[in-house]
Design a binder for these strands. Structure first.
Lengths: 147, 147
DNA sequence: CTTATATATCGAAAATGGTGGATACAATCA
DNA sequence: TGATTGTATCCACCATTTTCGATATATAAG
């Protein structure tokens, strides 16, 4: 469920938006066609968005990002990850299962121990990109974090 | 605030974890030193994690990801974005402000209109990486989405 | 089979985050 | 100055997510 409610789904309702667009563009007829082309564009854009959001959701938690960064160093047992995170076992396990569902890590069982590792180099890439982005933002403006 | 509670923060409490680690490693003394090195490693790893999580949080919403993908096509007015998303104005504005706080987009005011654009090519890169990751996961396993 | 132990899952409370109407603010126009 | 209009912010409601103790499951050992 990406979007929780369908409020203005009816393309004829919410004429407010169209009015605004008409003011912005200058012509009412052009606004209408612009709106249509925007909706068509979004249909194309929406390809795969759902799944990408799932990946970002998995990345959007400090515990999980820390786990991923840790796993850059190799393969770790749950009991090691618990200590690294300084979190209780159930919490650690929960985050690991979310990362696994998102396809970011893989599990290997060895006796009663579960060993986790990154599933792919692409995971590292995406983390590195975010680091770059963060550093760029920092050099451009002193403070970027919201609260 | 990355981590909500400090449960086992006291490095001496939660000896359970250390016990487990000792079982895993085989030696109690080695476990202790392993725990310390893990904690030191995490300290290094945690550099910038906060900010990176903020970036992923900003990306972890379908509306916002759609906005970013739209902005790949150029600069857009809020009234256009509203129509593209098919969302009310307050919601659209809210998402734009989160993206701006995360440093992913930039605003330019022109009269009473606010125009938004991507702040950087790195944003596109990170989205493309996620697409790659998603496609790889799909080819490896049939279904990856959690619920 | 029983015990011990490593991890996963459950469940309920708390925190977080999205939503959209109402309102505030800003800029243009009359 | 007052009216209009585009956008931002506020607010309460609701859905999702996180957290962690308790419990279940799985594997090994006795």
């Amino acid at each position: 469920m990406p979007v929780r409610k369908g409020t203005c789904s009816d393309s004829e309702s919410c004429g407010h938006s169209l009015q605004r667009l008409a003011k912005f563009i200058g012509d009412s007829e052009e606004a209408r066609s612009k709106a249509h082309s925007l909706q068509a564009l979004m249909k194309r854009i929406d390809q795969g968005t759902e799944e990408e959001v799932d990946i970002f959701r998995a990345l959007a938690d400090p515990c999980r990002l820390r786990i991923l960064k840790l796993l850059q160093e190799g393969e770790f047992c749950v009991c090691e990850i618990m200590i690294a995170l300084d979190r209780p076992q159930s919490s650690t396990s929960h985050h690991l299962s979310i990362l696994k569902s998102a396809g970011l890590i893989k599990e290997r069982r060895e006796g009663k121990w579960s060993l986790y590792r990154l599933s792919d180099g692409a995971v590292i890439e995406i983390i590195n990109q975010s680091r770059l982005l963060e550093e760029e933002a920092k050099t451009r403006a002193p403070i970027r974090r919201r609260d």
